[in-house]
């Protein structure tokens, strides 16, 4: 019974402030006459209309989810693959390091015009832009993680004649797991940003498109509803990410907890 009480008090501790702020927002904005800051009630209404009604939600979210899914997927696969390659072949990595640093330093958004010029204004361009911008954190973290594999483990694998492929997948990549996930989390945040940005040009659906149209048509409540929708979308994606991380990196979490207890 006391365990339930601890759990409840923990949840309450985390919820009271957000709830309080929402309540304050609700009442403070109720009589608002400002164009740019409509009552929370109106915003939530708009949110329900645009994002909770299935057909409209699908039309508004569908293209964005496609860009996120494919873009992030390609970013992960490409980033991990190239990061591993660079991490394993040191001479190659050293040779191309300045180029990598230069390419990574370009803010993904700055390439939007370039990508439009090269790839057009449709979904493929958006997916590629997201993939390009989001690949860097996971690529660099994979590189670091692969380089930091415990040398004794690699020695052990060689002595026991463990084949290259097995060494890569069962030792190197698993060892780099925590690093890769850390990079992947940043990549997720970048995916969302670039996705929204890419939909401001030449799109016909998606959250970014909705946002820009609402702005140009001066539908402020709709704009706010899009902000809320994006916040929730980002939050849900992060929860999914954390679930995956908890499962894959269970060993790391437990090991860290043990080390912290000991120190």
């Amino acid at each position: 019974m006391s365990r339930l009480r601890t759990w409840v008090s923990l949840v309450a501790l985390e919820l009271w402030l957000p709830l309080l702020l929402v309540v304050i927002w609700w009442f403070a904005s109720e009589n608002s006459t400002s164009v740019y800051f409509p009552p929370l009630r109106v915003i939530l209404q708009s949110f329900a209309e645009n994002w909770l009604v299935p057909e409209r939600a699908l039309a508004n979210l569908g293209p964005s989810l496609q860009v996120i899914g494919l873009g992030y997927g390609v970013a992960l696969l490409g980033g991990i693959a190239i990061g591993t390659l660079l991490g394993l072949v040191r001479p190659f990595e050293r040779a191309v390091r300045p180029i990598v640093e230069a390419l990574r330093a370009i803010p993904g958004v700055a390439l939007l015009p370039l990508f439009i010029v090269l790839f057009g204004i449709d979904q493929p361009m958006r997916i590629l832009l997201v993939a390009y911008g989001a690949a860097w954190p996971v690529l660099l973290n994979t590189l670091d993680g692969v380089r930091a594999v415990e040398p004794t483990l690699l020695d052990m694998a060689r002595i026991f004649r463990v084949g290259r492929a097995r060494r890569l997948f069962q030792i190197i990549l698993r060892s780099a797991g925590p690093q890769i996930f850390a990079g992947a989390r940043i990549s997720l945040a970048i995916t969302l940003i670039i996705m929204v940005v890419s939909e401001t040009v030449g799109a016909s659906g998606g959250v970014g498109y909705f946002l820009m149209t609402a702005k140009s048509e001066f539908r402020i409540s709709s704009m706010w509803s899009a902000i809320v929708a994006l916040g929730i979308l980002g939050y849900l994606l992060n929860i999914l990410f954390r679930i995956a991380e908890r499962y894959v990196l269970r060993w790391h979490r437990l090991q860290q907890a043990r080390l912290e207890k000991a120190s």
Binding site: T152, L153, D155, Q170, S175, G177
Partner: peptide, 8 residues
């Protein structure tokens, strides 16, 4: 501790 894989 370094010759055993901690993730399995």
């Amino acid at each position: 501790s370094r010759s055993l894989m901690p993730w399995t």
